[in-house]
Each structure stands twice: as C-alpha cells, then as structure tokens.
Amino acid sequence: MKNAQIQIGETIAVLFVFFILITIGFIFYSKVIRSNIEIEKDELSQLQSIAAAQKVLFMPELQCSEENIIVDSCIDLMKLRALSRDTIRKENELHYYDLFGFSSIEITQAYPSQPGAYILYSKPLAGARSKFVTNIPMGLYDAADRTRKFGILKIETFIS
C-alpha cells in the first residue's frame, strides 16, 4: 500500500515537472513567434511603401508623355495641378485608397524653389505606431513654357 502511494506520488511529480517544462517551452515559443510576426509586419509595410512609390511613378494620370511616348521619371505639372485640387482629390479618395492605403503623397518643387507642396493623396492612420518616409527626386514638366523643374516625390506610409 505504501509502495504504491510512493509510486503514484513519483508519477505526479514527474508529470508536474513535465507540464512545467511544456509551459516554459510554449511561453518561449509564443514570444519568438510574436517577435517574428512583428518583423514580418515591418517587412510587409516596407514592401507596401515601395509598391506605393512605384505606383505613383507610373500613374498615367501624372506621367509625362511626348507624342504618346512615356517619359521616364517625369510628372506633368498640368496634370499634377489638376489632380491635387481639393475637390478632385476628395472625389478620388476612395479609388486611391485601394492603391495606397494609409499613406500620404505629396510633391514639392525644389528647383526653381517654390514654397508649398502639391498634395495628391492624404489618408493618415490615427494612432499609427510609426511611418516610413520615402523621398524620390523626379522631373516636373511644365508644358506651358516647355521647361523641366526639379521635384521631390514624398511618400509617407503609416504602420499600425
């Protein structure tokens, strides 16, 4: 009777240690998985930011063209002025949300220097954890006087 009780106690002790080890392992594993998810989320946001930048660079509603041939790294100032008007921007907001998500896109003219910026899209995420800012220099073609200015495309991607 006493021997059997000792054996049962032994089994219970072994099981207790086993479950403690399993719990420690599970806690460790879940922490590792959580940090991996954070890393993957960060990488995904980076890819989204790159995708948004590339989409803006190749938007037909902004691209310059000469005799129907697309000019590389160039934005048409007339198209830009039209698209950045408040009324048009608000009308297109839903359409661009599918393309850019929570981000804001603006273009500034660096040379010849001009104050202010053309805001193309603005949908900031309230309570965003952080944001990526991508700046890409590009030409601004003014068809009125056939000149090219030096512009900067700024894309801010918000991360939840």
Binding site: E43, Q46, L47, S49, I50, A53, D72, S73, C74, Y111, F132, T134, N135, I136, P137, M138, G139, R148, K149, F150, G151
Partner: peptide, 21 residues
C-alpha cells in the same frame, strides 16, 4: 527592402532629373 530600393533609386533619379532640368 526599402533601404535597398531607396539607395538604388536615389542616386540614379537625382542625377537623371538634374541633368534634364
């Protein structure tokens, strides 16, 4: 990923845009 893309685009786009300005 972003750093690679930005540094690759930056030098090329800055020069290309400047030369055509």
């Amino acid at each position: 990923y972003r750093q690679g893309f930005v540094s690759a685009e930056l030098a090329s786009n800055t020069l290309n845009t400047f030369l055509k300005t």
